[in-house]
Amino acid sequence: MSQRTVAVASAQGLHARPASLFSQAAAAAGVPVTIAKGGGAPVDAASVLLVMALAARHGDEVTISADDDGVLDDLAAMLATDLDAE
């Protein structure tokens, strides 16, 4: 299991559109992906409700885990982008 730790770049945090886009991408990844905030318990990254419930704000560090480095790189890049600005 590989991991990446990224600071959330979206200005409004991992809410609304950013949470929606991120969990859609995680669901489409083909492998199970989890996300945790700080030292918290990891949750299913494909669940927009669980991702939103993390209440991760702009600048908060989140850790994503999966058995596929390519998937993790893509998702980490997404988290490091301000998705609200697009």
Partner: peptide, 12 residues
Amino acid sequence: KATAQMAQDPAL
């Protein structure tokens, strides 16, 4: 769309 995504939520 946001509401539809909630209805599709795997955890829920």
